[in-house]
Each structure stands twice: as C-alpha cells, then as structure tokens.
Amino acid sequence: MSTVVKIENLVKRYGDLVAIDHLNLEIQEGEVFGLLGPNGSGKSTTIHCLLALLQYNKGNISVFGQEIRPDSYDLKRDIGVIMQNVAVFEKLTVEENIDYFCGLYIKNKKKRKKLVDEAIEFVELNEFRKYYPKKLSGGLLRRLNIACGIAHKPKLIILDEPTVAVDPQSRNKILEGIKKLNEEGATIIYTSHYMEEIEQICTRIAIIDKGKVIALGTKEECKAMIKTGETITVDVPGLNGEQLKSIEGLPHFYKMEYENSILKVRFEKGKHNLIRLLDYLKEQDIDFGRVYSEVPSLNDVFLEITGKELRD
C-alpha cells in the first residue's frame, strides 16, 4: 500500500489564532480516512491546505508522492472534491452541472458522456437529469453535489462534511455510496463532526481539536487510548453521599456523575461491572428504573482527552 497523502508539521495561523498546529497525517491508498472533530477544530482548513487553495505558514503536503501546488494540474486531475456547501450552478440542470464539472477534468466528449451517465446512475438521480437544483430536495442536492465531485473517477476523494443538514435516509444512501466508491478503488478522506458516520465508514480515524491530532488509529485503537471501558447509566432517585461513596469503591470504578436522578458511572476495562453495580443497589434496597450500559464511543475518546463533548 502506498502513501496517498502526507502532511508534515502543518501550521496555519489566522493572525494570532493557530488554526492548524503542527499537524501530521499519513493516509494510505485504499483507506477511508476519517477526520473527526468539532466545528472549528481545523478539519476544513486542513482540507483547503491539502488542495493547495490556502496559504499555510509551515509544513509540507504531498499527494501521490508529489508536493501539491496550485498549478499541480496532473495531481488535481486525480482528486475529487465534495465540500460542505453545495457547489453547483443554480441555472444548469443536474446533467449539465455534472457535465460541466466533469468537463473541467475530462476533455474527451465521448468519455465524458459515459462518466456523466455513470455518475448520475451512481447517485441515483436518473429521473432528475433535467431538473434544476432548486427543484431538488436537500438530500438529492447533496447527491448532485457528490456526483459533480466524483464523475471524473478520481483516485482520491475528499468529502468535507457532505451530510450536513441531510435527512437520515439520504445520509445512509450517501454513506453507502462512499463505501462503494472505496470498494471501487478510491481512497477517501471524510471529515465530519458526526462520530456515528465516522465509526460507520472509516477504516482509520484522526480526531482533531484546535488544529492538533489528539488521537489517531482505527476506531478500536482510538478507544483503547482512554481509560473508560464501559459507561453504565441508571435512573435512580435519592442517592445519598454515603451510597455514592460506596459506588466509587466498586472494582474498576473510574468516574461518576449524578444529576437529576441519573447516575452515570464510568468503569475502566474489566468484567461484571453492571452486575456489581446492580447488586449493590439491590443490597441497599434502592429502587431504580431504566438501566443501560454503553461501550466507549469516539465522543468518549474526545471527552476524556479534551474534557469537552464533540458537539460542544
């Protein structure tokens, strides 16, 4: 497997604000690489630098083994871009839009026609070929946005929050499509602040905050970086200080929150945490309602490392 993207020591400042702080990334061929972070964490800035659109203060970026510059047209030919904001011409139809953008990459008319048809087929917009963008729903518009970015069959596809404000059904279709593109051989870079999406489709993840990579690896590797192994939530009113202290004494206990009758206990990796907690509550004759246990999510990884929620 060869390295498709290599970002070394990237620094981007806006005045005094450091948007990207010595960021390093290496993305391998065939990966679906997720960039996860809250809004303003530096995901889009990283993508803009990677596309040689944005000036940066320090660092090196190479794509397919070559430094990327604004006039690296040969490299750009193999990159597909789908940005957060829908970027289509309002006054051109679905088919014309895809043909226009595909035409910026592919000059051969016959080849382009075939690629446009395939892209329309891929995003399932066949019956909307002659529609103007304003007649499309939000989900269909996003699919058109994707088709415009992938019609030329790029080897590297960069998707920057492509599912923002999309209904769940369309979102699933988009995610399935991305998986399919990857299966067809494209390397994917997918940025999002939706951890569920990243967990669902990405083979490797970089969690970034304040322009820094705070966790990198597969989702299992990222989760293994934190202490929390299990979070148990119990709906239990009226616990007193002594009882809470006893819960703190349970094996593998890591952290606890108790607010509005909801007890949330985090345990380190270990077995039988739920049974032990419920046994204690029964022993103390404490009535409790709903109980559920969760394995750590990427949000837990982010929370434990940064002290704040991903969606803050």
Partner: peptide, 15 residues
C-alpha cells in the same frame, strides 16, 4: 475560492 463554494470547486479542478 474565498467567495463561494463554486469557487472552491473550480479552483480545485485542473483547469
């Protein structure tokens, strides 16, 4: 590219 999403897409293209 600093004025519209279309600008970003067009600047990312090899034209």
């Amino acid at each position: 590219a600093d004025q519209s999403a279309l600008g970003v897409r067009r600047n990312a293209a090899p034209t």
